[in-house]
């Protein structure tokens, strides 16, 4: 399975990874090699096999609906790259 540079560009775009052309070319080769390894899955006979999402076959535990006061905003925003008036800032999004 070989990935074209165009495909790598699309995946990088999906994952919001800013890569230059050299990186794209390198990754195309590396990702193709990885997908070659992974391709052996095709051969496995999985007829009637249920997908396994978790190692343990358990059901969700449901929490009681009780609200707890939130840790201070200042604690969280002290580590934020850009905040003003209690909100996080990002470059203006034009709708």
């Amino acid at each position: 399975m070989s990935l074209s540079e165009e495909q790598v560009r699309n995946v990088a775009r999906l994952a919001r990874l800013g890569l230059d052309d050299d990186q794209i070319a390198e990754y195309a080769g590396e990702l193709s090699n990885i997908l070659d390894v992974v391709a052996s899955l095709e051969q496995a006979d999985t007829t009637d096999v249920e997908p396994m999402a978790h190692p343990l076959d358990l059901a969700a535990r449901l929490r009681a609906d009780e609200a707890v006061a939130v840790q201070s905003r200042e604690d969280f925003q002290a580590i934020a790259p850009a905040v003003a008036e209690g909100v996080y800032l990002v470059p203006k999004v034009i709708e």
Partner: peptide, 15 residues
């Protein structure tokens, strides 16, 4: 389906 779902199935075989 070809990758993720398939791998979840082979995961069960391994388990």
């Amino acid at each position: 389906d070809a990758y993720y779902l398939k791998a979840q199935k082979t995961r069960r075989l391994i388990a």
